[in-house]
Structure formats: C-alpha cells, structure tokens
C-alpha cells in the first residue's frame, strides 16, 4: 500500500486528510496524480495546480519519482511558515 497525505488548503479542497492505495509496479508520482484526478472535477482541478508540492518519505520529490509499497506520499501547497 501507499499512504497519501494532503495538507493545508489542499486538504480542505479535497475534504481528505489521507488515503491508502495499493502500490502498482513502476508507478511514479505523476501516474498516481492522474489516477487521483479521475475521482471528480474538484480533485482534477486541485491536483493540476502547477504550484503543487510533492514529498515522498518526507523528502521533496518530483512527478517522475517512482513509488513502491510502504511509501508515504504527501501533496501540499507552497509552505508559509516562519
């Protein structure tokens, strides 16, 4: 399984904090995003935001990052702490 987390405005838009999906062989972040975007128009719009940030196992990742079972993927808007 892959654990997927959403934070801040993205979590509010999707009304979802976390989900789990089965891991597919050679699946990259982009494929996961495409899969999630098929849920409905809200997901499609929120996940197509060009400013979307990605982390895999707590490290900043990119759309081509390959995922494996047990990974934790996080999607979030640009950070605003400090």
């Amino acid at each position: 399984m892959i654990k997927i987390l959403f934070f801040a405005s993205l979590k509010d838009q999707l009304k979802t904090e976390s989900i789990e999906l089965p891991a597919n062989e050679n699946q990259c972040v982009d494929m996961l995003l495409k899969h999630l975007s098929t849920r409905d128009a809200i997901w499609q719009k929120a996940l197509s935001n060009s400013a979307l940030c990605i982390a895999v196992n707590h490290t900043i990742a990119v759309k081509s990052t390959v995922l494996k079972t047990g990974d934790e993927v996080a999607f979030f808007p640009p950070v605003t702490g400090g």
Partner: peptide, 14 residues
Amino acid sequence: IMDFLKTQAPFWKK
C-alpha cells in the same frame, strides 16, 4: 535558516 525555513519547512498559516 529563516530564509530557508520560510520556503522549505512544511508549515502552513491559516
């Protein structure tokens, strides 16, 4: 540290 904290540490303000 502050410059990078503001742009890289995953905090969000509401």
